[in-house]
Structures are given as structure tokens and as C-alpha cells.
Design a protein around this nucleic acid. Sequence first.
DNA 1: TTGTAGGCGTTATCAC
DNA 2: GTGATAACGCCTACAA
Lengths: 341, 341
Amino acid sequence: MKRKITLKDIARELDVSISTVSKALKNSEEISRDTKEKVQAFARLYNYRPNNIAISLKNKRTKNIGVILPDIVHHFFTTVFHGIEKYANARGYNVIACISDESFDKEVINMEMLANGSIDGFIMALSAGTQLKNDYNHLRQVTDQGIPLVLFDRVTDEVACDKVVINDEEAAYLAVKKMINSGRKRIALLTSEAHFNVSEKRAEGYYRALREHSLPVDEELVLVLPHMYHEENLSEGFFRRTNPDAVLCVNEIYAVRSMRHLQSQGKRIPQDVAVIGFTDGILSRYSIPSLTSIAQHGELMGETAARLLVDRIEADFRDMDEPEYITEVIKASIIDRESTD
Amino acid sequence: MKRKITLKDIARELDVSISTVSKALKNSEEISRDTKEKVQAFARLYNYRPNNIAISLKNKRTKNIGVILPDIVHHFFTTVFHGIEKYANARGYNVIACISDESFDKEVINMEMLANGSIDGFIMALSAGTQLKNDYNHLRQVTDQGIPLVLFDRVTDEVACDKVVINDEEAAYLAVKKMINSGRKRIALLTSEAHFNVSEKRAEGYYRALREHSLPVDEELVLVLPHMYHEENLSEGFFRRTNPDAVLCVNEIYAVRSMRHLQSQGKRIPQDVAVIGFTDGILSRYSIPSLTSIAQHGELMGETAARLLVDRIEADFRDMDEPEYITEVIKASIIDRESTD
DNA sequence: TTGTAGGCGTTATCAC
DNA sequence: GTGATAACGCCTACAA
């Protein structure tokens, strides 16, 4: 077991000073060809690599970025993460990932853990708990210290920072409009509890589309489901009772479950009922019938967030005092599949 | 913007020495009550937190663990990751995540990036590229430096380290046996290219079950698919040609696609054809019909890997010279759903 | 009870 | 050309 070698080791071995070794390895003009070759050969032989931690301490930058996600079972967050990771790596950054599990407390703990020097900046989507509690002091604490922060998807106006969102309202509007244009009249909305910013926005788009096409707004046709989809049968009675000819769901799990219940009630999709779901994930692609869905372009969102963050991290400190924060809007798009006509 | 405060700042402000501050904050007996209170109050006021990087440099341990995954779109790796993250956090470690994208080169780059002090140990599953190339020098380089490494799922005998695997062979065997017991005779296997260790193991289980139940082995019934599932119709002709009454798939995507093709050919599932897939993911749960699948207990695998790693990291250095490496086997189990009888 | 000094590994400045 | 020194932030053995 050959232990990790340091500048000091090389210096001792070659009987030169540490600073000479350091310079030689950087190919400094100051050092004689002879010495440089000797040092470099030795370093190569023993596979010398500078210690990241020491460099971090010296430079006060870690080349790590902290990512805090509410969960990782939702395909959407997975793709965002991938986008972040890809972009960050390309610019020489590592990604430290933490999962808040939708809990306020875990989010706070994770942020504090990372904020003490481990990372140069944060990318995160707010946990359900945080949105419910409406407490953003831990975020402000971070930004107050001058640590750059980028929020995506689940954002808040309460914190001044860069943001990346999708046009949820517009996407829902277009989806409903699409179904109206193909002749649907009784369009149901399956949404989740309202403290999720995004659900709210999607509901707004739903209502706007109805209004603009002079369809009656029937609150009976709106079903609010709990965020965790434990109970299998919640929506079964709903469909029997309300008998819709189209359904918009705020995620693909609701959508697939809806199709399942509708089919078991003898409905054909899309002939009798059209279904569209948010999140163009694996379920949408492989369900039977495959699901027309609203792609949120998670990977692009991740890349965008990472770009904003790295730019901010590497921004000149001259113009640090009064930054103009940016909110980038990613356009969602509808992917047509078999569940609509 | 209140900048991060250091021991030095406190010392200067309170006109004491740095070491006094350090000790006072640790509630050392050496320091007078008076001084301690003064220092602690000040530290609290300015929200002092020790700098992780400095501590890492001093202690030569980062409390970070590096996780390298081949991809993150497969639900299995996602769940493993979650298990690692959960366990690691509970023991005070952060997780640095890198994705090799199934590429040998990226795997090497990521490992080198992290191996220079950023992490205390690695958890990883080998990329496809690495298994294909059969080159494990980057792993040995890491273990040779005394950095603990735990391999999971996609492992190799070529590297001496702790490992976590599932009993793939046995699981496939049991799945096939189950279908034989319910009267199936023509059992197909959809597998991926053989350089994947796990696919190979699963195929072995398939063959063993056939042999032990005196069913003929018909190579026509085995379809080897490329790892990336771009081509949609690869298996369609296969089913028409071979007309199986049961199918075992090495992942759930193959399984769901199979069901789709079979259904479009007028077959009923499970009456005409039974289907079982590896990976108990979201597709299995929500497909129509829902898919009987082999749960690999990814979260447990992740926790186990993290436990092995942290134990190894924190192991006494006395018994470091000749470690006995452990391979833990996680038992896969069959989750019965609608695609089998 | 408090402070000094040295070290973790690296780099930059300045002196020889 | 080379090397000594200080600094990044923290800790600790030892001196005062």
C-alpha cells in the first residue's frame, strides 16, 4: 500500500525545497531544466496528485456544488440532477447531493452541513415541508453569507436569488386547450394539495383554458389528492361519479392510475376519455396506452441551473454588491402519444 | 452580507488568542468560565461554524463518500443511491455523486477527481464500458492508496474489496421455476449483451431451472438485446416466431415492452403468456397489467454498501494491513402481481 | 488560565 | 535558480 505522496515527500527525496518542487511541477520558468525534469519524472513515477482539500483551503473555493432535492424517486428530479451533474462536471465541479425527503428539518440540516465550506454554491428545489412552513431563513442565511443559490421548479419569491422554472400555467393551458379542440367538454383535473406552488400554477392554466373557451367551471371535476399516492382507490369513485371525457393530471403517476381505473370501468382511451399528464417520464413512455404528457425538460432545467450557479460563483467580485438576479423560464412542451387523439 | 467568521476573527475581536477561542468553544476545562461565556456568546451572535475544509485538512478525513453510478435513469440505481445517502447522512457523511454514463473514461476521470483528498471512500457499480474493457487499474490505484472501496451489483473478482451483490442466479431460477410450476412450457428469456455480469448470472439461473425440470433448452427462445433500448420493435418478430407461453426479462423495460408487443399480437396476459421482469420499479407497479417482478431491494443494497464502507473507513488502523474483505449477498424476492398466475 | 508554536498540503511573495 | 516564509482555518502539545 503506497500512501499518497505530497510535495514534501518529493522535496525530501530529491533534496530540494518544497517550493522548488511546486514550481517545477508547474513548469515555472524560474526553475532549471534539469531540476524540472528530475522532479517531474519523480512525480510521475509516484503518481503525485495535488491534494484537493489543501487547494480548497488555500483558494477558498472547493469546486463542489451542493444539490438538495426533495426526493429522487420522481423521475423529474432525477433528470434535473443528471443535467446538473453533466454541466457541473464539464466545468470542473463535483456535485454533492443531499435529499431532504420533503422534510424542512432535513433540508436545514443538509444546508448547514454543506454551507460551512464544503461547497461553493447551492442548487435546490424546496421541500414540501419548507413550502408548508413557509420559512426560508435557512436560505437567507446562506445567501447572506454570499454563497450563491439557485432555486429550480419549487421556488419562492421570499428569497432573492437566481431561479429556473417552467411555464406551468401555460403548459396546463395548452394541454386543456388541446383537449377542448378535439371536442372534449367535461375535463377533469387531478391535482395535489395546493401548498405546492406548481400544482397551483397548473390549476390556474386549467381554469383559464376553460374560461377562454366558455366551458363551465365545475368544481366537481377537480380532485385534490394527497401528495403521497398511497391509497390506490381514491380516484375510482371520482370517475364513476363525474364521468369526464378528458383528464389532466399534475403528474404521471396520477395519470397512469387514472387510465387504469377508467379502463377497469370499461372506458376506452382515448376514444371515451383523453388523458394528459405532467412529467414526461418512463411511465408515460411505457404505459399501455402510452401517455400524452407534458415534458418539463428536466435535464435542460438542471443544466440551466448549473450554468447560472457556476457563472455566479465565478463572477468577478467587483460587481458583487448589487447582483441582478435572473429567473429563467424553461418552456414545457406536449409530447403526443396514444392517450389523446 | 456578513462574511463567514473564523476563530481568528473572534480572537481579534475579543482580544484573546486563537487557541483560547478554540478551547473555549469546546468548553475546555482549561478556560475560565468568564472567558468561555464571552467567547461562546460572541460565537453564537455571529453564528460561528468551523470550516469543514480546514478540519478535513487537519484530520485527513473529509466525511464525504464518493458514489459513482453508471446512470441514474434506471430506477434501481436511484434506489441504491437513496439507501447510501440515507445511511451515510445518519453517520455524518455527505455523498458526492458522479455519473459515469456507462463510460470507462468518465469513470476514470471521476475517480481521479475525487481520489485526491475529496472523499474518504468509494461506493460504485462498474460502468458498462469498464466491464467491456475489463480494465480495473483505476480501482486498484485507489485501493492501493488505502482508500476503501465498496462495489455493488456490477462487481468484479479482479479487485480486492468489499462487495454487495444480489443472488441473481437464484432469483432467475425461482422466477422460472414459478412459471414452470404454473404449467408453462415454452419460456423465453430476454437478456442484454453478455458482458454484463448480472445478465449472465440471470441467464444461468434460467438454464438451471429448465434443466432441473427437464424442459428442453431451446436457444431460439433466448433473445439478446442491446443495452440501450432504442429500437422499439426488436422483440416483436421474436414473439411471433417463437410463440412462448412465458417470458423472463432481465429488466422491467424489456418486460413492459414485451407485454406491449404480446398484447398487440392478441395475446392475453397472464392467460396466454406470463411475464416476469427483473427490477421492481415504478413501471412494474403501474403498468397495465401490473408486472410480477423481482425486487432487488436497492435501498437495502445501498445501506449495506454504505455500512460496509463507513465501517471500513472508521476501522482501526491497527488491523489495516491484511483486511478480510466481505461480500454481502442481498436476497432478491419475487413480487407477485397481475402478469403471472 | 492563557498563549505559543507547529503542522495538515499547497501556493505566492520575496529574499538570497 | 533556489529556498525561506507566510498564509488559508483549525487543532493541540506544550510553555508560561
